[in-house]
Design a protein around this nucleic acid. Structure first.
Length: 542
RNA sequence: GCGUCUGUAGCUCAGUUGGAUAGAGCAUUAGCUUCCGAAGCUAAAGGUCAGAAGUUCGAAUCUUCUCAGGCGCUCCA
């Protein structure tokens, strides 16, 4: 509809101001102001006023003179120079049939340029279970990967498992400390979570080899590889189970250690050689190896071990070579790390416009008004699934998706649990269930006679206008990766429906008005489509 | 100090590439059940869009400055 109006305007302006370059300035927008009786408007005459040095009202009149009369659209001029369009109900009501006859309401959200995209998200260290602090990144990463898939891209969802660094060693020692306290002797801040005890029990039960405790404390404890792998596997399995409970599946679990495989092309030492050849290493006279950047960044420490950055750079080097677009979903605390990563990739000859880093702002967690900090190390955390058990996956999804990722948000656990019944997601689902009830009562309605033009009640008109916006909202949500737009649309639609339902009797005993049935069927179809898009269930009964 | 994200109703958040009188939910107040599901509906009340200046016909939206908050500035991961 918008496009049709735009074409009309283009035509008219071509006539009014031939050979002009004004076409590019034309935009048609939805009317959102409540007091304005119109569906769409254009501000083109105000824009032209400046260039033509004429009164915008006058320009609008000149343009509208050249708009050919169309049956279903009324054109108005309103000061200071808006050109408003009112679409007649007959035309609008067609949206109901369009929706009900569509096989794929999201069919228009397709890209012309299919790309191979890697979306890496969560990637929490396997040193503890996923907790509520990870929730936002989990849900966000999963949903944008879904949107990209709908667009038609070839998407790989990837979890990067940091199973190589010092923190894994600490994890192992934390586990061993429950078997023999001597393991904890030379270590401070070990992991305190319950799971370390559980794994210790498994180690004993399965007779897994324990490391030898060295006689003198200057010898490091040497952890057998199989034992280490056993512990890491157990942790990763726990995380997988948690994600499974949220219905999230990854396509690829990439282990940091695999970069060090003999056959790996992307071994960090190859990386260093490459950087050295291209003259990108910085030497400050110490034993450390550094990358030249806005500030030198350490790749290999003086003791010969790699930094996290070195292996992460190798990993990104790999992704950049294998994919057209590389997306990272990171917590906002990593933002200072971006220039380093970009500098590294540029030094390796990559174009960083392929790299798209989505920063997610932190969710501050409260319990009864008091801030709680999540610390895996101290064993202070609320597991993501505990929250899921309390309020359900639908509420979790909806909660996180309602907010823009750049918005800092506050989350009070107890309030969330207590107010769960008021969660807006149920309001939407309730609309779906109510419609379901009516539709089953009505039975088969598709082949009955109906007249959409009879829908002329104010509430029906509102409902239909909202339905008309679905296409645009869906496009924006999916193409611009903004899930919160859809959550707000669904709330508005549910609201319009509940209002309609409460005020207008849809099922009349004497005779059924099948146009109303088609209307609510369209509403239900759109709600279901929107909820599916957000990974939320559409229950038929609640 | 530098970088970065944010500041909209009592609370939690929307607000489209700058458009018309600022939008929801929760909380508060007052109403609504012989009738399709009250997880609902109808209203009321609630705002100096942090503050100031600027650009513009027009600013919550863009620019600059100030104030306030989160996060980051490791040979940590």
């Amino acid at each position: 509809m918008k496009k049709i109006i735009k074409d009309i305007l283009i035509n008219a302006i071509n006539h009014t101001y031939p050979n002009s370059e004004f076409i590019g300035l034309i935009e048609v927008q939805n009317v959102t102001a409540k007091n304005v009786e119109a569906d769409f408007f254009s501000n083109i005459s105000m824009k032209l006023a400046k260039q033509l040095k004429e009164n915008p009202m006058h320009i609008a009149q000149e343009i509208t003179k050249n708009i050919s009369k169309i049956d279903d659209i009324q054109v108005d001029i309103v000061k200071p120079g808006y050109i408003n369009f009112i679409v007649h109900d007959k035309e609008k009501n067609n949206v109901i049939s369009i929706i009900n006859n569509s096989n794929d309401l999201l069919g228009h959200c397709k890209t012309d340029d299919k790309l191979k995209i890697n979306v890496e998200f969560v990637s929490a260290n396997p040193t503890g279970p996923l907790h509520v602090g990870h929730g936002r990144g989990v849900i966000y990463g999963n949903i944008i990967a879904k949107f990209l898939k709908i667009q038609g891209h070839n998407v790989t969802k990837e979890y990067y498992v940091n199973d190589h660094g010092n923190q894994i060693r600490k994890l192992c020692l934390s586990v061993f400390s429950h078997i023999d306290e001597l393991y904890a002797k030379s270590e401070d801040d070990l992991y305190q979570g319950e799971y370390t005890k559980e794994i210790a029990v498994l180690i004993k039960k399965n007779n897994i080899e324990l490391p030898v405790i060295p006689k003198t404390s200057d010898h490091l404890i040497d952890i057998p590889e199989d034992t280490r792998n056993f512990i890491v596997k157990n942790m990763v399995d726990r995380i997988k189970t948690q994600l499974n409970n949220l219905n999230i599946k990854f396509d690829n679990w990439f282990y940091e250690t695999s970069l060090f495989d003999e056959k790996s092309k992307y071994k960090p030492d190859h990386l260093i050689q490459k950087l050295e050849k291209s003259g990108n290493l910085h030497n400050d006279g110490t034993n450390a190896i550094m990358l030249k950047a806005e500030e030198p960044r350490v790749l290999v420490k003086s003791d010969g071990t790699y930094t996290y950055f070195a292996t992460d750079l190798a990993y990104h080097h790999l992704k950049m070579e294998e994919y057209d677009v590389v997306i990272d979903v990171w917590g906002a605390d990593h933002h200072g790390y971006i220039p380093r990563m970009e500098a590294g990739l540029i030094a390796l000859g990559h174009k960083t416009d392929k790299l798209d880093i989505h920063l997610i702002q932190f969710a501050n967690l409260y319990r009864d008004g008091e801030k709680i900090s999540m610390s895996t190390r101290k064993g202070e955390y609320v597991e993501l699934n505990e929250l899921g058990d309390e309020i359900g996956n639908d509420a979790i999804n909806f909660f996180y998706l309602t907010k823009n990722k750049d918005q800092h948000l506050d989350f009070d656990l107890n309030v969330a649990i207590n107010q769960n019944k008021n969660n807006p997601v149920f309001y939407i689902q309730y609309a779906h269930a109510r419609i379901e009830k009516i539709l089953t009562e009505v039975g088969r309605y598709q082949d009955k006679e109906y007249d959409l033009q009879s829908l002329d009640n104010k509430l029906e008109k509102d409902l239909i206008s909202t339905l008309m916006n679905f296409n645009e909202v869906a496009t924006k949500t999916i193409m611009k990766l903004q899930p919160h737009l859809m959550t707000h649309f669904l709330l508005k639609l549910a609201q319009d429906f509940h209002s309609y339902y409460a005020n207008i009797k849809i099922l009349n005993q004497d005779e059924i008005d099948y146009s109303k049935i088609h209307l609510i069927a369209a509403v239900q179809k759109v709600i279901k489509c929107g909820l599916d898009l957000l990974n939320i269930n559409s229950p038929k009964v609640m």
